[in-house]
Design a protein around this nucleic acid. Structure first.
Lengths: 152, 152
DNA sequence: TTAAAATAGTTGCACATGCCACTAATTACA
DNA sequence: TGTAATTAGTGGCATGTGCAACTATTTTAA
């Protein structure tokens, strides 16, 4: 019925939304929402980051970051320690409870990647990541340049 | 500081969120939100579809579709006509006001694609679309199969 | 050294999105 | 034919997300 030509933007939208559904479904049982897993995964890689560092690494708004961490803290997955050297900021640490489910949380992303990669060769998977990375870097550069408020 | 290895999922998230920001910013002046442009674009391709058809084509929840169309109708961009043959459903038509901004609305997506494609060869762009399409189809198949409520 | 600018984090608001329960109409079938 | 099942659309709820205004602290510079 409709012309089936899809665009990059359209597929990105589908992949994002469906990925969120999958992740949300898989983590629901732990009381972790689809907006929080990304922070857990970042902290598994490097524990003790500040919210600012998480925000800028993940390129997620600091308000969103604050809310996600608040939930993770309420669920007992992270705790926040005011830094002595700079009392404005925290260090965010994973709790034992968070470390205990590390493999499971990381497994959700791994599994989703496997679902997406079905039928793709190793080479295609590598290429997909490389091209997404290039486009992502372009997007980030553009958006970040354009919200620098013109000084004048 | 943090290991810079990003995954497909991470880049998809960034591309989606930044794309939404870009689109929202560009269409704000027309009173069109970032959640509505996708429906306009689908209708530019084929006018007069039902909400059901739009939902299933775009793979967007029918509740979300209903709300987006309600906004577009309130802004005078679409109107809905009950079908005589099936009084449960509408045909959604673009108004003259919507047709007038067609090039501009479509241009937003084109421009965003150009931003993303900066530094990519034609061949890479083709590949990117092809790989996204394959992964998108995998995602859709998985999600759609898994929410078929087991009959038993 | 003090006043101004920058920075980390919080909160409220608006909006997008999916899910679910619901209504009204249509279709299937006993 | 009449009842059950299915379908199109709506509305409420929960959550994620970005933005903007705000506070508290730290840094810069006059």
């Amino acid at each position: 019925m409709i012309d089936q030509r899809h665009t990059i933007t359209r597929w990105v939208s589908l992949l994002y939304r469906y990925g969120q559904m999958y992740i949300g479904e898989r983590l629901k049982a732990h009381g972790i929402g689809k907006g929080q897993h990304i922070f857990l995964n970042a902290l598994y890689k490097e524990d003790g980051l500040s919210q600012e560092e998480l925000s800028s690494y993940l390129k997620i708004d600091k308000g969103t970051t604050a809310k996600a961490l608040k939930k993770l803290e309420a669920q007992g997955y992270v705790l926040r320690q005011v830094r002595a050297e700079d009392k404005r900021s925290y260090r965010v640490f994973l709790t034992e409870k968070a470390w205990r489910i590390k493999d499971e949380v990381r497994g959700v992303l791994t599994d989703w990647r496997h679902i997406l990669s079905d039928g793709l060769t190793e080479e295609e998977q590598r290429l997909a990541l490389e091209l997404l990375e290039k486009m992502g870097a372009n997007a980030a550069r553009f958006i970040e340049e354009n919200d620098k408020t013109p000084k004048a």
